[in-house]
Design a binder for these strands. Structure first.
Length: 263
DNA sequence: TCTTTATGGTGAG
DNA sequence: TCACCCTAAAGAT
């Protein structure tokens, strides 16, 4: 479930559980075996995230660049767990074990590569120093639909298909609205939303856009089927006005909105 | 036991 | 614009 919040949360968890190491690295699946051997036994300097990109810096060694893509997962396992599934990279310390499966990217890179990657990205609302004006400016230059621009990682880094629909709903704008016609105040509102929502996403390790009182909890647990306003809810009534939520396709991905609440 | 879907992105034409 | 990459769980039959 990889949008930006997932990757930043991963970086946090990896820092906490694998640092400083030394870290044992292996690639049970095979394709990354040579690279894993290069990492084996090194100290993890730090894990950090930029948008949906995860970087693991090893002391006196390379950086591992991981992008989970649509189906990739990096999951903690109980130390001693056997090999199940197609594990591209396994990282182990004395008391932690992480398995990476199905990543779009898993490669060894150097600092220049890291710079190239981050330079290609728009501001990341989860990073300190990210500038709202930068986002507003980049959004204002795009004639594509707002919902498409929010998916464009060079406009804003870390937003994915869930957040884009939810943000359009929360600001009350139809997803197909050309990005450049969105008022500056609304663009600023979207950025502020992104900062708040992704931070909450990191904290909860899941996307929850509805307010706590709306979501409801059972014994302190979040009601999983009640976390979002529009995503994957086509045909169901809007939580606010009751109108049926509509599904459309924008930028080759599904997009949901309420035709009444979003004009 | 199939087929489909998924919170993503690249490269060729 | 399209084909394609990666994996696993959910849904359909």
């Amino acid at each position: 479930m990889p949008e930006g919040h997932t990757i930043h949360r991963l970086a946090k968890d990896l820092n906490r559980s694998l640092r400083p190491g030394p870290v044992q690295a292996s690639s049970p699946q095979g394709p990354f075996a040579t690279e894993a051997r290069q990492l084996d036994g090194l100290l993890l300097e730090r894990a950090h995230a930029y948008g949906k990109h995860l970087f693991l810096d090893f002391a006196d060694g390379p950086t591992v660049h991981i992008h989970l893509g649509l189906i990739g997962k990096m999951r903690p396992k109980e130390p001693g767990t056997g090999i199940e599934g197609a594990i591209r990279l396994r990282l182990e310390s004395d008391d932690a074990l992480w398995d990476l499966t199905g990543p779009m990217t898993c490669a060894l890179i150097d600092p220049a590569d890291v710079a190239d990657i981050t330079a290609s990205l728009g501001p990341d609302p989860l990073r300190r120093g990210a500038r709202r004006e930068e986002f507003v400016d980049r959004l204002g230059r795009r004639s594509i639909p707002l919902s498409a621009a929010l998916l464009d990682q060079s406009v804003i880094a870390g937003i994915g298909n869930v957040y884009r629909s939810e943000f359009c709903y929360l600001v009350g704008i139809k997803p197909s609205t050309p990005a450049k016609t969105v008022r500056v105040e609304a663009a600023e509102q979207i950025w502020d939303l992104a900062v708040d929502q992704l931070r909450l996403g990191v904290k909860l390790n899941r996307i929850v856009t509805r307010t706590p009182s709306e979501v409801g909890t059972t014994a302190g647990r979040i009601d999983e089927d009640n976390r979002l306003y529009v995503y994957k809810r086509e045909g169901e009534p809007c939580h606010r006005c009751g109108t049926e939520i509509r599904l459309s396709e924008i930028a080759k991905r599904k997009s949901w909105h309420c035709p009444t609440c979003q004009k």
